[in-house]
Amino acid sequence: MSELQSMPMAKALNAGLRKALADDPKVLLMGEDIGPLGGVFRVTEGLQAEFGKQRVMDTPLAESGIVGTAIGLALAGYRPVCEIQFDGFIYPGFDQITSQLAKLTNRHDGTITMPVVIRVPYGGHIGAVEHHQESPEAYFAHTAGLRSVSPSTPHDAYWMIQEAIASNDPVMFFEPKSRYWPKGDVDLSESGRPLHSSRVVREGTEVTLLGHGAMLSVLLQAAEIAAAEGTSIEVIDLRSISPIDYDPILASVRKTGRLVLAQEAPGFVSVGSEIAATVTEKAFYSLEAPVIRVAGFDTPFPPAKLETVYLPDADRVLDAVDRALAY
């Protein structure tokens, strides 16, 4: 029985977290300002009042401390969900994430699990100051032992956060912060799907566009414009950054023969680079053109007044589509 409700992604995440807290007494939320304030993006609004200070913890202002104590809590049988306030503030916790959280199951020869979720609001489009608009997902995708996902819609956010919490492996949960506010239909009866599955969101025949998070709205906009110009574009939402669900991607490339990848993160040594290499290896004879990447420039994220130039938009995506079609 579907229970469709229209809500923004921040509310959908809130609903998913509430359900996880209600369903499993071992689930805990921890982070900076997530209590009475409800987090700087209000994702945890009302949850401390509902579940108490012991289960929704305002922590000291220390990211390594948040992740490191979450590891200890996981060893003690809990399932912590950590909020990192902004993408650019994750690096003080990077050592605990990559040297400890990611490796502890392996270090224990598989005798323990590490069910920890790290929620990271990420990406640009919000006109914020430095360290508040970055896309650091490639660092974590590069680290064995971590899983990384990013929803693009309120509905996906609702079920994916619950699946991430249910995972016995650590999950980096990247929330496209510019998508926190636009509303979408959420089916609150959704009981969950495989966490690491990409999805064809628009069918087409001539070019495949692939991206994750906030990039999806740009890709869909580009596909609309292209359709008006007579070009049929297929759009795939990656959803899982690590591992990558290649089957729908390869099936689409074998149909269209052309793949354009788009991401906010810098292109050098990125998720898009990895997918381009793999698609070239696995679908070489189906490709009519090289795989083309559209990415943030390989510069620091610029001051906010320049971000619209830095971030890939529909025009830059369509420029890449034109180049792919020109082969």
């Binding site: 104590t69 200890g72 809590l73 060893l75 003690a76 809990y78 605990q96 040297s99 400890q100 224990h108």
Partner: peptide
Amino acid sequence: DPREKNNFHIYTLVIGSQSLHATGYAMG
């Protein structure tokens, strides 16, 4: 496996990292 060794956890080679794991365990 620490559970088979009277809760003696495994060695940590990165200096000081285990202090946070211990504190988290104590929170648990």
